[in-house]
């Protein structure tokens, strides 16, 4: 029954704290940039930072980094589907 604890290396507490600190820093960045009135660029920065933050949560807090390929593929399929839904809708909105 020893094979039950094979993948416990990844549960180091320091990784989680580091993840958390990264997220806080990213939040600080996005709030600061939003205050600088950069116009269109600020929207871009906000979305990019949010995506990075979401990725960090996915990979470390949600353990996706340590999951098998199946989980990763499934996540990409779901995200890809959402992207396609948004993209095709915009073919209507942008050219109306």
């Amino acid at each position: 029954m020893d094979n039950n604890r094979t993948d416990q290396e990844h549960t180091g507490f320091d990784v989680y704290v580091l993840t958390w600190v990264t997220l806080l820093i990213l939040t600080a960045i996005t709030v600061t940039v939003a205050g600088m009135h950069l116009g269109k660029l600020s929207v871009l920065v906000a979305v990019v930072v949010a995506t990075v933050k979401a990725g960090v949560v996915l990979y470390f807090f949600m353990h996706l980094k340590y999951e098998s390929a199946l989980f990763k593929i499934m996540v990409y399929v779901a995200l890809g589907t959402l992207m396609i839904f948004v993209g095709l809708t915009f073919f209507d909105i942008l050219f109306r």
Partner: peptide
């Protein structure tokens, strides 16, 4: 349940800039 909680967090990560930071 942790996975669910993190997802709720991720949703908020997007809601926050989209509503509060586009001034």
């Amino acid at each position: 349940s942790g996975l669910y909680w993190h997802l709720v967090d991720i949703i908020w990560i997007f809601l926050f800039p989209l509503f509060y930071l586009i001034t």
